[in-house]
């Protein structure tokens, strides 16, 4: 199954980056959301894919059965999902506030920190 997943991850990354390259904040935000999925699936696939057997030690066993899914990437991804969500929310609010303040949603018109014609620094001491 891994080649299919690799293809899928490639597609997710491509779309995320394509959206990032757009000048519109809202599309960049959607790119960020997709990028989170892309990275999570990347980690998931790198830990190898198995079907349907969750990494739960069942019944009277003391040890995880052979053939169960790899628990380590899942633990990494679980927290990553929550963090990327809160990060996404932060970006969303940031973009929203920037839109309110600057009255534009185009990144190339947001030039407060890097003005278009910035004066040279003073040459004296």
């Amino acid at each position: 199954m891994e080649p299919l997943f690799a293809l899928l991850v490639g597609a997710l990354f491509t779309v995320a980056f394509y959206l990032f390259l757009s000048k519109h904040v809202i599309r960049v935000l959607m790119g960020a959301a997709i990028l989170g999925n892309a990275v999570n699936l990347l980690i998931f696939t790198a830990g190898r894919v198995t079907r349907e057997v969750p990494p739960v030690i069942g019944g009277g066993n003391d040890v995880l059965v052979q053939g169960a899914a790899n628990p380590l990437p899942q633990a990494l991804i679980l927290t990553a999902i929550v963090i990327s969500f809160s990060f996404f929310a932060f970006l969303l609010v940031l973009g929203f506030r920037a839109f309110q303040k600057l009255d534009t949603d185009r990144s190339d018109e947001m030039r407060v920190a890097e003005p278009v014609r910035e004066a040279s620094p003073p040459l004296g001491y």
Binding site: P54, V56, L78, T79, I81, V82
Partner: peptide, 12 residues
């Protein structure tokens, strides 16, 4: 701790 679930999912 023993079945699928936990603090993150519950919290969400």
């Amino acid at each position: 701790h023993n079945e699928p679930g936990g603090g993150f999912i519950g919290g969400l």
